[in-house]
Design a protein around this nucleic acid. Structure first.
Length: 631
RNA sequence: GGUCGUGUGGCCUAAUGGAUAAGGCAUCGGACUUCGGAUCCGAGGGUUGCAGGUUCGAGUCCUGUCACGAUCGCCA
C-alpha cells in the first residue's frame, strides 16, 4: 500500500499541488493507536515547500488520495499529520493475504546471495558458559533470520584447538590425573565426567599448580636465592625491585604484578607446557595423539551442550588447520605495498590514514598472529564457497577493534567482498554479583544453567500446565521447550550490542515479556482451534475494529523480518512477537470467538487466531524457540 | 591519555528525526456460573546523565562535558 501511495504521489504531485514532489518528502508511519486512522503521511515537508500551513497541504493531499484510491475510505488531518483511514474491504484483503500464504512474511528461499554466519568460537579447555549462550543463540538466530529473509546460509564454527592453553590442560592431565588400578588415567568413560568438563578441570588444575610454584619462586627471589634463574630474569628482577623504592602503594602493586609475570617464565611447569607446544608444532606423535584424544573428549562434551541448545553447524573450522593460513597473503600484500616491513623482519600495516594505528600482521620470526590467521581464514572461506557474498562474525564487543582492522586490511588487499563482512558485536553478560571471572569461579556454566532453568520450568508447568493428555516423554520434551524457550528469549530480547545483566530469578520468570508468555498464547490458540474443528462458514467474513487492530499487526510481520535481518537483530523480531501476543491476548479477553453467534464474525476471528498462531510459531522458530501445541 | 560503545520511572527493556516517551518486573486496586487466569483491565511512578547547538519538530543528529564499560600485546 505504501508503495502504491508513493507512486501515485510522485506521478500526480504536479497536478495536485502544483509542484513536483520530492520522494524524500514522502514519509509514512503507522497511525498512533489513540487517533483515528491506519496510515499517517507526514506533511511538514510539503507544507514547507508550498509555503502554506501543514493542515492546508494535508487536506489537499487527503482529498486527492481519497478520490484516487478506493481503499481509502476517509482521512483526518491533525496538525501536520494526514491520517488515512482504510476501508474494511482493504483489511479483509489484507487478512486474506496473511492467511492464504503459508510462507507469509518470509522471502523466497535462496532468492538472495549466500552468507556465512560464524558463531561460537569455543576454547577447547574451557566448558561453555553464559557468555557463549548469548553468542550462540544470537548467531543461530541471525542465521535463521537471514534464511527467512531469503539468503542462503552457511552456519559455521571456529574451534580454538591449539596453543599454549591446550598444552596446559594436557600437561596437568598427564601429571595430576589419578592413576586407575589398570594403569589408565582419568577419562570421561571411566570417570563419568563430561568430556569438556574433564579437560576444563585439568586446565584449572594447571593454574593452581602454576600459582603455587609462582609463590615459591618469588619467595626464593625475595630471600636472595636465584638458583635455576636465568641471568636475564635475575637482572630484570633486580631492576624491578629496585624501582619499588619510594613509590606509593599503587605503583608498588603494579611492579609486583610485573614481577609475577617475570617469575612465570621461571616456573618449571610453564616451561614444560611450552616444551609441549614446541613438540606439538613439531608433530611429535605422542603429543599429537594426546592432543587429539583430549580434544575428542571436548567435542563430545560440546555436542551434548549444542544439542540441548538446539543449534547446529554446516561447516567447522579448526584453528589447528588454519593457523598457518594467511602468511602467503601477507607476503603478497607486502610485495604489493599494502604492508611494510620493519628492520627486525616483522610485517605491519599502517592504518594511520584511517584513524587507526599501525598493526602487526606477521611476527619477526615469521610466525602468524591472530590477525594473520583471520586474514587467511576469510580468504579461504571464499575459496570454499565460490558463491559466498559475505561473512557475519558473531564475536563479543571486546574485539571491535580487531574486526575493524581485519575488514580494512581485506579491503586494502583488494577483496571487494570485504564490505559484506559484518562483525555482529554483542555486549558482555554480567551477573548481579559482578563480572564473570573464570579464575574466581564466578562463571555460570552453560550446562548447569540450562539444567536449572528446565527444572524451574518443570515445576511451573506441573503446577499450572494442562498436560493431562501428554505422555511422559511428551512432558519431558515440553519442560525442555519451555525452559529453553524462556532462556533463549531472555537473552535475545535485548539489543545485541547492549551489555546485559543476567538475573537468574528474572530469567526463570514466566510472566510479562518472556518466551513462555508467547508460547502460552500460542498453545491457547491451538486449543481453541482444536475445538473449532473444521468450522467453515459460508457467510462473508465480517471484521470490526478489534479485528482490524490485529490484522494491522499481523500485516506488518514481513517488515519486521526484513528489518531484523538487515540490522542483524533478533531483538527486533522478539519485540514484534511480544507486541502481537499482547494484542491477541487483549482481543481474546474481550471478544468471544467460538461463542460468537454471528457466523461471519466468528469465521474471521478463527482465521485471525490461526494466523496469529502461525506467525508466532514461525517467528519463535527463528529465535530457536519451539512453540508447543499444549502446555 | 587516544579510540569505540552505552547512559530512558525504584529495577529491566522499547521507540525509521514526528503527535501526550511505549512496555515488563515490583507496588496497589479490579475482572470469569462463557472459548486455557502462565490471561486481561485500571492506578501511582519521567523535565530520556548534564550543558549548548541544528531543525517546523530531538530520547534519536552535531559539539562539549560527566559516569560506566571495552580496547589500545610480536596473546587468542
Amino acid at each position: 500500500m505504501e508503495h502504491r501511495l508513493r507512486a501515485i504521489l510522485l506521478e500526480r504531485g504536479r497536478d495536485w499541488i502544483g509542484i513536483d514532489i520530492n520522494s524524500d518528502w514522502i514519509q509514512f508511519q503507522p497511525t498512533r493507536k489513540d487517533v483515528r486512522g491506519d496510515l499517517t503521511l507526514m506533511v511538514f515537508p510539503f507544507a514547507k515547500a508550498l509555503q502554506c500551513p501543514p493542515a492546508v497541504a494535508a487536506t489537499k493531499l487527503g482529498e486527492h488520495l481519497q478520490r484516487e484510491i478506493d481503499s481509502i475510505e476517509d482521512f483526518e488531518v491533525v496538525q501536520g499529520f494526514l491520517n488515512l483511514v482504510f476501508s474494511p474491504q482493504y483489511w479483509l484483503s489484507a487478512l486474506d493475504e496473511v492467511c492464504s500464504n503459508p510462507h507469509f512474511g518470509f522471502s523466497k528461499p535462496n532468492s538472495k546471495p549466500r552468507v556465512m554466519v560464524e558463531y561460537a568460537s569455543p576454547n577447547t579447555n574451557k566448558p561453555l558458559h553464559l557468555g557463549h549462550l548469548r553468542n550462540i543463540f544470537l548467531g543461530y538466530s541471525v542465521a535463521e533470520l537471514k534464511k527467512a529473509d531469503g539468503y542462503q546460509v552457511v552456519k559455521t564454527q571456529v574451534i580454538n584447538d591449539r596453543g599454549i592453553h591446550i598444552c596446559k590442560s594436557m600437561l596437568a592431565w598427564q601429571r595430576f590425573s589419578p592413576l586407575q588400578p589398570n594403569g589408565e588415567r582419568e577419562t570421561p568413560l571411566n570417570s563419568g565426567i563430561k568430556g569438556d568438563k574433564l579437560v576444563g578441570k585439568y586446565y584449572v588444575e594447571f593454574e593452581k599448580h602454576l600459582q603455587q610454584e609462582l609463590k615459591e619462586v618469588i619467595s626464593r627471589w625475595n630471600s636472595g636465592d636465584f638458583s635455576n634463574t636465568s641471568s636475564a630474569s635475575l637482572a630484570k628482577f633486580q631492576e624491578l625491585s629496585g624501582a619499588k623504592e619510594g613509590k606509593d602503594e599503587k605503583a608498588q602493586a603494579a611492579i609486583d604484578d610485573k614481577i609475577k609475570e617475570l617469575a612465570k617464565s621461571e616456573t618449571e611447569i610453564l616451561r614444560a607446557a611450552q616444551d609441549m607446544l614446541v613438540r606439538w608444532e613439531g608433530r611429535d606423535p605422542e603429543t599429537y595423539l594426546l592432543w587429539s584424544t583430549m580434544n575428542g573428549w571436548v567435542y563430545q562434551g560440546f555436542d551434548v551442550t549444542y544439542q540441548r541448545m538446539g543449534v547446529d553447524f554446516d561447516k567447522l573450522y579448526y584453528e589447528s588447520d588454519t593457523f598457518l593460513l594467511g602468511k602467503d597473503q601477507v607476503m603478497d600484500g607486502l610485495a604489493r605495498g599494502v604492508f611494510f616491513q620493519k628492520p627486525d623482519g616483522s610485517v605491519w600495516i599502517d592504518l594511520s590514514e584511517d584513524g587507526l594505528d599501525e598493526k602487526l600482521v606477521l611476527r619477526a620470526d615469521g610466525t602468524a598472529v591472530y590477525m594473520t590467521q583471520d586474514i587467511g581464514t576469510a580468504i579461504e572461506r571464499f575459496k570454499d564457497y565460490s558463491d559466498l557474498s559475505g561473512i557475519v562474525y558473531t564475536v563479543g564487543n571486546e574485539q571491535d577493534y580487531h574486526f575493524k582492522v581485519l575488514f580494512l586490511i581485506l579491503e586494502k588487499l583488494g577483496y571487494a567482498w570485504a564490505k559484506n563482512c559484518y562483525h555482529l558485536s554483542y555486549g558482555m553478560v554480567d551477573l548481579p554479583t559482578g563480572k564473570m571471572k573464570s579464575r574466581e569461579g564466578t562463571v555460570v556454566d552453560a550446562d548447569d544453567l540450562m539444567e536449572e532453568i528446565v527444572v524451574a520450568a518443570t515445576a511451573m508447568t506441573q503446577e499450572r500446565g494442562q498436560i493431562a493428555e501428554l505422555s511422559e516423554e511428551e512432558r519431558t520434551r515440553l519442560y525442555e521447550n519451555i525452559g529453553m524457550g524462556g532462556l533463549k528469549y531472555y537473552l535475545l530480547k535485548v539489543d545485541p550490542k547492549k551489555r546485559m545483566m543476567f538475573n537468574p530469578e528474572e530469567s526463570i520468570d514466566l510472566n510479562g515479556n518472556t518466551g513462555p508468555f508467547i508460547q502460552y498464547t500460542h498453545a491457547r490458540i491451538n486449543s481453541l482451534l482444536r475445538k473449532a474443528g473444521e468450522f467453515d462458514s459460508h457467510e462473508p467474513l465480517i471484521i470490526e475494529e478489534e479485528e482490524t487492530r490485529l490484522i494491522k499487526v499481523l500485516h506488518v510481520f514481513p517488515n519486521f523480518i526484513s528489518e531484523a535481518s538487515q540490522t542483524y537483530s533478533p531483538a527486533v523480531l522478539a519485540n514484534y512477537l511480544y507486541e502481537l501476543t499482547k494484542e491477541y491476548n487483549s482481543f481474546y479477553q474481550q471478544c468471544p470467538i467460538l461463542n460468537e453467534s454471528n457466523q461471519g464474525l466468528k469465521a474471521s476471528r478463527i482465521l485471525i487466531s490461526r494466523s496469529v498462531a502461525n506467525v508466532l510459531r514461525r517467528g519463535l522458530l527463528i529465535l530457536g524457540i519451539s512453540a508447543p501445541e499444549r502446555m
